[in-house]
């Protein structure tokens, strides 16, 4: 079975980003970029399904500008077999990305598509669900365990009160949560080999998708700062402050 895994290029999770001073956008000049952590978990899960003999081919896909090739190469170094870049330098929103991924799904006909549950830049948490809607496939979002059995999969999901188990028919869409697995690191020989793996590029126009944004960002600004607090010396001081100053207990 073929697995399609989506990867997104985002600001590294250790970077604390700031808005530009004119509020027109986020300052990303000279900022370290990386594969979105949830997408890394998605790649790892695809590789584990291949190691278990369930998957036979893993295709890594990214939607973004030319530099997203780096993140596809990372996925290839980790164990994906080939890559697809849907290349555009336009601003992309989840619905457009889902439509572009739907076009790739139509071409590739995977049995399972794995995505991260959200990207740590836009924090939208939408693309997997939207892709599931457009394909009509079942969705196993916020997955913490996946077991493929015949023509269906048992998926354990992280929900607000605990865990939920669903049986979903293949083909299906999965989005990863943090506890699904712990991603491996790419070895140097595999990083070298990844450079030679096949990577095809399409444009949104070639896929016949209108990727125009529907939501306009008017401005961005920093959040309200918390005023600096104080250090207390003892537990007794803390209790006194909470009772008499903050009046919260």
């Amino acid at each position: 079975m073929k697995i399609l895994v989506a990867v997104k290029r985002v600001v590294d999770y250790n970077v604390k980003v700031r808005p530009k001073s004119d509020g027109s956008g986020v300052d990303l000049a000279n900022v370290k970029m990386a594969i979105n952590p949830f997408c890394e978990i998605a790649v790892e899960e695809a590789i584990r399904l291949k190691e278990k003999g369930i998957a036979t081919e893993i295709v890594a896909v990214s939607v973004g500008d030319k530099s997203s090739q780096e993140q596809i190469r990372t996925a290839l170094a980790l164990g994906a077999d080939r890559g697809i870049l849907v290349e555009t330098s336009e601003e992309l929103q989840p619905l457009a990305i889902a439509k572009l991924l739907k076009a790739v799904v139509d071409k590739e006909q995977p049995q399972i598509v794995i995505l991260g549950k959200q990207s740590i830049d836009g924090d939208n948490n939408q693309t997997g669900q939207m892709l599931a809607a457009l394909t009509g496939y079942a969705q196993g979002t916020f997955a913490s365990q996946i077991t493929v059995e015949g023509d269906s999969a048992s998926v354990i999901r992280e929900v607000d009160g605990g865990l939920q188990t669903l049986t979903l028919k293949l083909p299906l869409i999965l989005t990863t949560d943090l506890r699904l697995n712990e991603p491996r690191y790419a070895s140097l020989p595999n990083i070298m080999k990844a450079k030679k793996k096949q990577l095809d590029t399409f444009t949104p126009a070639e896929l016949g998708v209108d990727a125009a944004p529907r939501v306009k960002t008017i401005k961005v600004e920093p959040p309200a700062e918390r005023k600096a607090g104080i250090k207390v010396a003892t537990v007794a001081d803390l209790v006194e402050k909470l009772k008499n100053e903050a009046k919260v207990i």
Partner: peptide
């Protein structure tokens, strides 16, 4: 957005 480090309108 960005883990609450930026507020977008």
């Amino acid at each position: 957005i960005y883990a609450g480090n930026v507020i977008a309108t």
